[in-house]
């Protein structure tokens, strides 16, 4: 399975943010999307998630050599700032989510199993989400993105809000589920990208570019990435 971006153009008023971005993301890999502040990472995600209409180009999903348009159920999108309905408890939110997605989720498990999966403790499950910590809200948001089992996962700076232990848990979790998903992970923390991701893609000057590591050392690879990101300045 592949997510194929074909020459995507997106402008706001006269500012062209994406200038013909093309790429093919494959299943089974975690892609690290690196870009400078304001380079358009979130815009790209919003375009893929159809929150923004693209001005030109196409976004298609290729399955068994057949290309088709994306549908809402294909995508799970985790935002950098977690947003959850604060008036529900964790358990109620999950129940509500499972209720309305019942037909789409292949094998619904008991709610507590989902909590175990992201390691949210017994004592927290029946508390209002309003009283959850930032990290726990993020976990809930990730959880509902995972449960519906979309084939594409867009993660916008997801690990920055976690403490080191939870961040490590989440990394393991992503590695665990990557074989069935196309995971695109945006960040501007290079170490995180190098540590977790199988491929590094940079968004610079409105286009996507794959960074081949070849047989470079980690340091040399970092330099190569920074050089590539610097190009933006010269544009």
């Amino acid at each position: 399975m592949k997510l194929i971006l074909n020459h995507i153009v997106k402008s706001f008023d006269k500012k062209e943010v994406l200038r013909g971005a093309s790429f093919a993301f494959e299943k089974g890999k975690i892609y690290g999307l690196l870009g400078r502040n304001g380079s358009g990472k979130t815009t790209l995600f919003n375009c893929i998630n159809e929150d923004l209409k693209i001005d030109n180009g196409s976004i298609l999903l290729e399955e068994n050599r057949v290309k088709r348009e994306l549908c809402p159920d294909d995508i799970g999108y985790v935002l950098s700032t977690p947003v959850v309905p604060e008036f529900l408890t964790g358990r109620e939110f999950l129940k509500f989510f499972l209720d309305i997605n019942m037909k789409k989720i292949p094998d619904i498990k008991p709610i507590d199993e989902y909590f175990n999966f992201v390691k949210i403790g017994m004592e927290d499950r029946d508390r209002l989400l309003k009283d959850y910590s930032h990290g726990m809200k993020s976990k809930m948001q990730m959880l509902v993105s995972f449960i519906a089992n979309p084939c594409i996962l867009l993660l916008d700076e997801p690990l920055t809000s976690f403490d080191v232990v939870v961040a490590d848990e989440m990394k393991r979790l992503l590695r665990q589920i990557k074989k069935d998903h196309i995971i695109i992970f945006s960040t501007h923390i290079m170490e995180l990208a190098l540590d977790l991701c199988d491929e590094i893609v940079i968004l610079s000057g409105g286009v996507l570019e794959n960074m081949e590591k070849d047989d470079l050392s980690n340091e040399a690879f970092k330099d190569k990435i920074i050089q590539a990101l610097r190009k933006d300045e010269n544009d």
Binding site: N49, P72, L79, F87, I100, N101, A148
Partner: peptide, 18 residues
């Protein structure tokens, strides 16, 4: 304030039927 500003970020919540 208490519901839509967070829930509208979820795509399932924005489906016409929902």
């Amino acid at each position: 304030m208490n519901c839509d500003h967070s829930m509208l970020t979820y795509r399932f919540y924005r489906q016409p039927r929902a």
